[in-house]
Design a protein around this nucleic acid. Sequence first.
DNA 1: ATTGACAGTTCAATTTTAGAACTTTAAGTT
DNA 2: AACTTAAAGTTCTAAAATTGAACTGTCAAT
Lengths: 163, 163
Amino acid sequence: MKWDELEEQPCSLARTVAVIGDRWSLLILRECFLRKRRFEAFQSVLGITRHLLAERLKKLVRLGVLRRIPYQESPKRYEYILTQKGLDLYPVIMAIVHWGDVHMVDSRGRPMLHEHQNCGKLFDPVMVCSECGEPLAAKQVHVHPGPGARQPAVASLKAEKVR
Amino acid sequence: MKWDELEEQPCSLARTVAVIGDRWSLLILRECFLRKRRFEAFQSVLGITRHLLAERLKKLVRLGVLRRIPYQESPKRYEYILTQKGLDLYPVIMAIVHWGDVHMVDSRGRPMLHEHQNCGKLFDPVMVCSECGEPLAAKQVHVHPGPGARQPAVASLKAEKVR
DNA sequence: ATTGACAGTTCAATTTTAGAACTTTAAGTT
DNA sequence: AACTTAAAGTTCTAAAATTGAACTGTCAAT
């Protein structure tokens, strides 16, 4: 399966994985959320090869997660900032960080703590139901096919083949 | 940077990316949350090569996300089920799915809908602050170094090198 | 005149992944 | 008894992605 095919699957997880499902994209986005914006800043802190960083940044721009804006003329230089689509990845990032905080820390404890400006406290992110506000657990959720459940052309062809 | 180095960074995101930050792991876990448990089931629905599936399953077992348990003797056959550590990835999966639902759907709408058994309603996952219960936004969160902020040996060497 | 910063690009060597065939153990079918 | 199927892998070669290192072009500072 190629990356482009992933994007076309009738699955919101697969489509998102097509955007962030590689080793570097999430690390680049981490730096974006930590207010880094420039090529050199990403490269030096991550240790990613310049080649790949250039490619990943292009991809994230193409997909609308980052915007490339000039910050000086002559020589023309650009920096990368999160779009709203990119900012909306915050819950993904926080869910990932939280899982690491719970399951991947050593005896020394968490590398980072998060403070919520609204209430002034150190917090953990909690995922809740938009309707009743209760924390979510996998076992309490049932899945139903939605209106976009199947691809019109490709999937029906595949179905034929399988039958 | 190698995968093993990722795991050792003083960053919960990097450590989690070392576990799920590739094209296939999240898709395999999707199937796990959809109650799939067997090699053939994963392989046929995902289209992943058998070679890579075997490798990824081994890795997820080694990292404690899945458990490999025999479901029949002679011939000995195994299936893969989520551990608690694996089940705890649910918020990560849901955050990813939700972002896809918002930003990657076509005109036909969402491929899947989620029903919360507790309240009986179709819902979206929302990430809130554990302390005040308010929905989280990146701009309202400040980050502080925690007790595990730096690697004891490696990081200080790196710091020397940089200085 | 030289050095350094920044944002990349280029290219060979290595590592990963894809695609396909093959293996093993046993049950079911002809 | 021979043949087919199923499940869970393993093995192999070709293709693709990633690494590592050097190089480019533009400008400012020394």
